[in-house]
Nucleic acid binder design. Structure first.
Length: 714
RNA sequence: GGGCCUGUAGCUCAACGGUCAGAGCAGGGGACUCAUAAUCCCUUGGUUGGGGGUUCGAAUCCCUCCAGGCCUACCA
């Protein structure tokens, strides 16, 4: 057992700001969150750090295509990511962004250190250039005809058809994916890090057996360390969305240079908020850094990143935990099959506890891919969590609802002590990231508890008043055994632990809460702890995810923004939709015959001049964030952007018609020059324009494709 | 082409070179009826991908073949 002073810093990989969180991402965030919750439950000082990864060509291109700033794009994605993570109970201590001042500053520090260590060299690189878009092109932004087999429409690096590999300049009839222009070859200066100078150090560090899984160490040894390490190209010529390199104007750090430094920048933000010293976490022998990543980004985290940290004099990772990929039904996630399931789509249908438990039950300490098999998912969650665990609480609590637990914990034949002892083995499994083993061990305990309950048949005792104490004893034992399960499962399904604490009137705050039985405590009125997972709900979720099926995603380009609300409306053609979903979604196909009821209900106002109309400044705005105001009956609190850094907080009386998550990302029309109004819940700096009589009948105005935040309505 | 990894019951997975290879789910039979159609007991089911080898002894170590996954093939 480590000393109490030991600090554990945990990171999960930074999700890229170019797409929404999906169930593939969640393998990692759930894995990491479980580990962090476990460490905290054990009483360790543990901080969970993450951030959005925001730089690079892809972001730049997309922002350009969508006609908005990169900052607007990444702000929206960050809000969406954080909302999704929160929905899955992933509890970061800090969630930052690589596009932050702290990160720019730290990148500069690293750069200076690399320069001083003599690791940076300069070289010309010839690359394809799109003269029309004015940017250099990565291989995958060039398409053309394969020089080997003649297949058309192939990417610049390799051919899907014949598997040939080549350089983009070998392509026949190359075209830029961005503009369709024919790329030309241009030379530009690039800056490289000579990783080879750190070869010996990296050999030692990777092969020590302490920091990496064995197969990862083998992979590195066989693939990289057996020959001189290649120089790493860490710069990109303008235009590039990122940080400009201070001593090389016109050149930017490559996204993979600043991304891992983002771990530190996000830590710095957390430290600032909590009065902690940054160096205690990144330059201290008492601190352990644990990175959780997917196997696709092994290289960056096991060679380059340790090299950078070493050069800059920071702590090296104590361990890099690497996991495999997610498959669904044994195959890659597929948009057409509906298995590319976004976090948001999942949360509209299912309890996050199901996925957290299922992933935990399948995750081991190694890099194996993890398969989400739908049938197994339903079976396992129901059999384990509902039938064995939750049902144990349900059947026993209801029998002694009035009396509460026995005053003295009765003789249980050693069951409780046995399960308490098993806590050590279970903890070791969690610590080693062997969650499948942990869940297996926990379920063994659940089986024993259920067998005990059946053997004692307390429902028969209930019929005989003379047996009331015996009844109370048996159920007290069962509930204590159940509580142990809830403690052990707390890192995986934290909400269940909370509900259990309420039921038994005793908090679950520490792993050791499973070591001592409760006695004499009253029971809160029993409430359903977890719903069964229904196959039809899973199927509906998959339907929602099929390509072509609309989905309310903040990811949608502005052209689709007005459809964002409509999307939810039609998520399922077979199920009843919520009220808001009927909102202005479908354009009438048939010639419309409209009643004049609305006009009669609200007659036209008196005539005005065009000058009077011009006083009202209507602007397009994008909803960056939306949250419920719990104390308010009608209000949602929206943060909208007029572009750039121009943000407004607006309270809108649309709670009955829209859920906050439906709004994030879409464009709305606001009265931008309305005098700010102090409301009970804060200052409202504008007004969202909507039609309808009110209550559930509220319809926000959308705009046709091409409109941009900040544009005025004339 | 190179590399890493995997292959155990219908499914998902266990099993420090050592008692008849185990468990959950699914299947079959029975019990119970407190509980979220849940639970409990019994039970069917495996030439451990194929073939060689090392060993007193191999799912486990070595070789080879087959199948699958992933990474990589000079901006890694």
């Amino acid at each position: 057992m480590a000393s109490v002073e030991r600090r554990i810093l945990v990171t999960a990989a930074l999700p890229y700001a170019n797409g929404p969180i999906h169930i593939g991402h969640l393998v990692e965030y759930i894995q990491t969150d479980i580990w962090v919750r476990f460490q905290k439950l054990r009483g360790r000082r543990c901080v969970f750090i993450c951030a959005d990864d925001t730089h690079g060509t892809a972001i730049m291109i997309r922002a350009r295509q969508e006609g908005r700033s990169e900052e607007a794009l990444i702000a929206e994605m960050s809000a969406a990511h954080q909302r999704d993570f929160a929905g899955f109970d992933i509890a970061f201590d800090n969630y930052g962004s690589t596009n932050s001042d702290a990160n720019r500053r730290l990148c500069g520090q690293f750069w200076t250190a690399l320069r001083q260590a003599g690791l940076v060299v300069e070289r010309e690189v010839s690359q394809l250039y799109d003269p029309q878009a004015g940017t250099f092109l990565a291989d995958r932004f060039v398409k053309g005809t394969c020089p080997k087999c003649g297949a058309t429409n192939q990417y610049g690096d390799s051919c899907d058809k014949c598997g040939a590999t080549y350089s983009p300049s070998d392509l026949i009839e190359p075209t830029s994916v961005l503009s369709g222009a024919r790329p030309e070859i241009r030379a530009a200066k690039h800056l490289f890090v000579e990783l080879e100078q750190l070869h010996e150090f990296l050999e030692t560090w990777t092969q020590s057996g302490e920091h990496l899984q064995a197969e990862v160490a083998n992979y590195l040894k066989g693939h990289f360390l057996n020959e001189p390490l290649r120089d790493w190209d860490v710069s990109r010529p303008a235009p590039y969305f990122g940080f400009e390199i201070p001593d090389s104007p016109g050149h930017y750090w490559y996204v993979w240079f600043d991304a891992p430094i983002g771990y530190m920048a996000s830590t710095a933000e957390w430290c600032a908020r909590h009065g902690e010293a940054f160096d205690d976490w990144w330059k201290s022998d008492d601190a352990e850094i644990h990175h959780f990543i997917g196997k696709d980004i092994t290289y960056f985290h096991t060679l380059f990143w340790p090299g950078m940290l070493r050069a800059a004099g920071y702590n090296l990772p104590a361990k890099v935990h690497i996991h495999g990929f997610l498959t669904v039904g044994g195959e890659k996630m597929s948009k057409s099959k509906g298995t590319f399931i976004k976090a948001e789509t999942y949360l509209r249908r299912l309890d996050p506890a199901y996925l957290r438990y299922y992933y935990a039950s399948k995750l081991g300490p190694r890099l194996d891919d993890l398969d989400l098999n739908i049938e197994e998912f339903v079976n396992k969650v129901n059999a384990d969590l509902v039938n064995k665990v939750v049902n144990l609480a349900s059947r026993s609590a209801k029998l002694i609802q009035d009396t509460g637990l026995s005053e003295v914990y009765p003789d249980d034949g050693g069951l409780f002590a046995n399960a308490a002892a098993a806590g050590h083995e279970i903890a070791a499994a969690f610590d080693a990231c062997d969650y499948s083993r942990a869940t297996r061990l926990i379920m063994e305990l659940a089986d024993k508890a259920n067998a005990f309950f059946d053997m004692q048949a307390p429902w028969k005792l209930k019929a005989d008043p003379a047996q009331s104490q015996r009844l109370r004893d048996v159920c007290s034992i069962a509930l204590n055994l159940y509580r142990q399960l809830a403690v052990y499962l707390a890192p995986i399904v934290p909400r269940l632990a909370q509900q259990t604490a309420v039921l038994l009137n005793a908090p679950i705050a520490h792993w050791n809460d499973a070591q001592t039985p409760l006695a004499g405590t009253p029971l809160a009125p029993f409430q359903h702890l977890m719903k069964r997972l229904e196959r039809k709900d899973v199927d509906a979720m998959i339907e929602d995810s099929k390509e072509g099926a609309p989905a309310a995603t903040p990811n949608a380009p502005p052209t689709a923004a007005p459809a964002a609300v409509a999307a939810t409306a039609t998520t399922s053609s077979t199920t009843a939709t919520t009220t808001a979903t009927t909102t202005g979604a479908t354009p009438p196909a048939a010639p419309a015959v409209d009643s004049d009821a609305a006009l009669l209900a609200e007659p036209l106002a008196s005539q005005i001049t065009i000058d009077e109309f011009a006083k009202v400044d209507l602007r397009v705005a994008r909803v960056l964030a939306a949250e419920d105001v719990p104390e308010a009956k009608k209000l949602l609190k929206l943060t909208v952007s007029l572009g750039g850094e121009h943000k407004r907080t607006v309270f809108a009386g649309i709670k009955a018609a829209y859920r906050p998550e439906q709004l994030v990302g879409r464009l709305v029309l606001i009265v931008a020059n309305l005098a700010p109004r102090q409301m009970k819940f804060g200052l409202s700096e504008g007004m969202i324009v909507a039609v309808g009589p009110g209550e559930k009948e509220v319809f926000l105005l959308g705009v046709d494709s091409g409109a941009k935040p900040g544009q005025r309505a004339h």
